[in-house]
Amino acid sequence: MSFSLLQSLRYRSLETPIHRLDPRVKLLASLSFLSTALLFGDFWGGLLSVSTAIILTQLVLLGVARSASYLLTTIRGATPLVALVFILSLWGAWDLTPQLVELIYRATGSSIRFLAFITSFNLFFLTTSPDEFGKLMLKLRIPYVYTFTFVAAVRLAPVIADEAQEIINAQRSRGVEFERGNPVKRVRALVGVFIPLLVNSLRRAYEMAEALEVKCFGASSRRTTLRDIKATRRDYKAALLVLSITGAVFAAKYLGLFTGLP
């Protein structure tokens, strides 16, 4: 379950209008989804809600980005969690509301709200490359060391995953069985993966440190960047659109426009 949740956050390199948007705009949109989902809930439940609108909006946007199926995967992965929220909110409100219909109505509202909440960053993660993410971190004035650590981790993760697979294969080839035997044997089998992985990682860490030195890492306190994220007119328009819709929804809420609806 949690695995497919993570899987769905995988960036795919595609050329779509959404992928081309400035990552800051997408961050803004995702933040807007998140805050709207947080603020709207109790007053207005059921299927036809602001939360439903958020999910549908994301689905459309990700459809344009040709990644809608990934959002559906997330939703599918989240189903057990959502079901849990449903049961908990039913149970929690049992004594307060005598009417079963209203109870279900409210619980459904909370569940969808929860779903909108946990999927709110899908748009951002599915369409922002790790590289852009690194640049965004710099733009947000996060110190370069953290940005570098993030980028290097993304760069190395598949390399280390391959290495781990290779070690597992090597141990299986000498008769080690990971799925069989008593617990002691299994732990011992895992040690056989862990130690080579550790040794290789240590060596890698040294080699990387050497390479960083000869590439003048930290040589200047004023590091420059070759490529920056630059907002275009299109990005400004998109940001304006996001802000005005969010603003309108919030205004409507505080003006009490939603209370009359079912």
Binding site: D131, V151, R155, A211, K215, L226
Partner: peptide
Amino acid sequence: DNQLFALTVEN
């Protein structure tokens, strides 16, 4: 592999 850190060749 241990001396290329960025996510594009250019970087």
